[in-house]
Amino acid sequence: MEPDTTRNRIAWEAASRKHVHEYEELLRQARDGCSLLDRELDLLRPVLRSAPSVVHLQSGHGLDDIALVAAGARSVVGVDYSAVAVASAQRRADELGAACRYVVAELPGAPLRDGCADLVYTGKGALIWMPDLRVWARDAARLLRPSGRLFVYEAHPAAPLWTWDEDEPRIRADRGYFDRRHVNDTFPGHGAVERQATLAEIINAVLAAGLELEHVAEYPEPFWRPDGVDAAAWRGRLPNSFALLARRGGAAP
């Protein structure tokens, strides 16, 4: 691994201990609720009606995988480079009887066969760890069967610029939209190196991988809010998240 990746893996193995400490709470959330946001479900429902096989790149605690199965997915394979997160996610899925299995692996380069998925799902803090988005997009496209979809629900690339001040939205003086990286200074990824890309760069990476863009939307709400924080930047005036749906060409077998 390159130095930044090694540093990030150490940071996230430590952060993933949270999934172990909060195992019972996350189990209740997975059993009784749905971690997929309404905006995600609005876009995914037509895809989930066909009971797709799903690959979740950077699957984290795995609650989204259980929610995807509950919403109609036939099965989910989660890929994450945190062995701690994967172990907790697999235990939770097994306990709930959900059709989810997990693989520990660095991405891009998922150790899965070509054309194994009808849907590749990712986001919610995933793309910021990818050193080369074009390689990532090609790997995601490789996993898709003809007519399969890539779905991304992610923090908006501008969101790292906003301060968490509660009185007025402000831009951080130490960050810029066109920067290539910055060091995370908040929980849970404190000390990890986040990559930066513009929205145009993300879209162009997907297009360069040969996928057909079906939908892009930007939203004012963040996908995650830390407890006790009510930042003015999250109150509707600035972009904080986005969704992207793209299709692999060709007819389904």
Rank of each mutant, 00 (worst) to 15 (best):
L48V: 06
L43I: 06
Y23F: 15
H21Y: 09
H21L: 11
R28N: 13
L37Q: 08
L43E: 10
A51Y: 04
D32H: 09
P52E: 04
D42F: 12
E25H: 10
R49E: 15
H19T: 12
S50A: 15
E40H: 09
D32G: 01
E13Q: 05
Y23K: 12
S16K: 03
L41N: 05
E40I: 12
Y23R: 13
A30I: 05
E24W: 01
H21S: 08
R45A: 15
E25W: 08
L41Y: 02
A30P: 02
V54Q: 02
V20K: 00
E24K: 02
C34Q: 03
L27A: 05
C34L: 08
V54C: 06
L26I: 09
V47L: 10
E13T: 00
E25F: 00
D38C: 01
G33I: 02
A51T: 11
R49H: 13
L41E: 06
S35C: 08
D38W: 00
S50Y: 13
K18L: 11
R17F: 01
A15V: 01
V54M: 01
L36E: 03
E25G: 01
E13N: 11
R45K: 15
E24I: 03
E22V: 00
S35Q: 12
R49Y: 12
R28I: 07
G33W: 09
P52R: 02
S50T: 15
L48G: 09
R28D: 12
E13L: 05
R39P: 04
S35R: 11
G33S: 12
D42G: 09
Q29H: 14
L36N: 04
L26Y: 15
L44S: 05
Q29A: 14
E40A: 14
S50Q: 15
R39M: 11
P46D: 07
V54R: 02
H21G: 00
D32M: 09
A51L: 08
H19M: 06
R17G: 03
D42K: 15
Y23C: 08
V54G: 01
K18T: 12
P46N: 13
L37H: 08
R45M: 14
P46V: 14
Q29W: 14
P52C: 04
R39S: 13
L36H: 01
A30E: 04
L37F: 08
E22Y: 01
R39N: 08
C34H: 04
D42Q: 14
E13W: 06
R17P: 05
L36I: 03
S50F: 14
R28S: 13
C34N: 10
K18E: 08
R31Y: 02
A15T: 00
D38N: 03
R49Q: 14
Y23G: 06
E25R: 11
L44G: 08
L44F: 06
A30V: 02
L44R: 08
L37S: 11
D42P: 04
R31I: 09
D42I: 12
A14H: 06
L41I: 06
E40F: 06
